Computed example of a mutant assay.
Amino acid sequence: MTMQALPQREGDRPDTGPAVPHVQFTQTSPKAVREQLRQWMSTEFPDTVTGPSEISDPGAFAVFLDGHAPAKGAVLLPPRLTAEFAHVHVDGSLHLALSPEDQKKLLARGWGEPHPLYSAEINVVMLYAPRTVEELDVARTVLEASYRYATGHDRVAV
């Protein structure tokens, strides 16, 4: 699946916090789905490292560029804006950096919302927590788009 083929999200929008910390209160991920997502994030992206988020609540698991600068024009997550491109919260929702085109697709198809602090300088959108194994594939697709935005190239199987 590509961001171009992203399906429309089924069901109502989940309840999320209107301010920081920006979290999801309803329709959270089952523990097994969250664990599969974290494991996948740990192994799928070349030239990255994983660990605690530099910006999110305790327990958030992030992916960082390892030893190289982001692609020209890419604005990643604060505070550095140069390393962390995605993190998953304990509720299963994610914050990530995406290109403007991919942000539009994500929002138009009902998979997420802008972060309350979103601006030209704070390029953060929320991807709603995957509720099923099928929605886990959507999360993987969106994370691959975030990686592509951060690095300027596609993921290569490792």
Rank of each mutant, 00 (worst) to 15 (best):
P21W: 04
Q8D: 09
V88A: 02
D102S: 06
L81G: 04
P114I: 15
V23K: 09
E144C: 12
V88G: 02
A71M: 07
R34P: 01
A145E: 10
F64H: 06
A74C: 06
L107R: 12
P52A: 14
H115G: 02
V158G: 13
R131G: 00
S56M: 03
S119I: 09
G110I: 07
P116E: 02
G67F: 08
S93Q: 03
E44C: 04
G152K: 14
H68G: 00
P130D: 00
I55G: 09
V88I: 10
L6H: 14
E144S: 07
E113G: 03
G112T: 10
D154I: 12
D154H: 04
G73I: 05
L106C: 14
H89F: 03
P79W: 08
A69T: 12
T16L: 02
T151E: 02
F45I: 12
P21E: 00
P52M: 05
K104W: 10
A69N: 12
V133R: 15
V124L: 06
V124R: 05
T151Q: 01
D47V: 07
E101H: 09
F85M: 03
P130F: 12
P30W: 08
P70S: 02
Q8Y: 07
A150F: 11
E54C: 05
G110M: 02
V133T: 05
A62H: 13
N123T: 06
D154S: 15
Q39M: 13
D154L: 05
D57P: 03
V33I: 15
A74T: 03
E134F: 14
Q27K: 12
A19G: 09
D102P: 09
T2W: 04
T26R: 05
D12C: 03
E134G: 15
G17A: 14
E134P: 08
V124H: 04
F64V: 00
A86M: 10
G11A: 02
K104I: 11
S93Y: 10
L127G: 07
H87D: 00
H87E: 01
A62Y: 09
P14R: 00
V88P: 06
H115Q: 03
D15R: 13
Q27H: 06
E54I: 14
R109C: 09
D12P: 08
R140C: 03
L117N: 12
V63M: 12
D12F: 06
H115S: 02
A19R: 09
L77F: 04
L76D: 00
H153K: 04
P52H: 11
D137V: 08
E134A: 11
V125H: 14
P116D: 00
G112N: 08
L76E: 05
A108S: 11
S119W: 07
L81A: 09
G17N: 15
D102F: 08
V158H: 14
S42N: 15
A62K: 06
V63C: 01
S93C: 08
V133S: 12
H89G: 00
A74L: 05
V158P: 15
P7S: 07
T16M: 02
R13M: 11
E54N: 04
A157R: 14
V33F: 10
R38D: 00
G67R: 06
H87F: 12
H153Q: 11
A120N: 15
V23T: 14
E135F: 15
D91P: 01
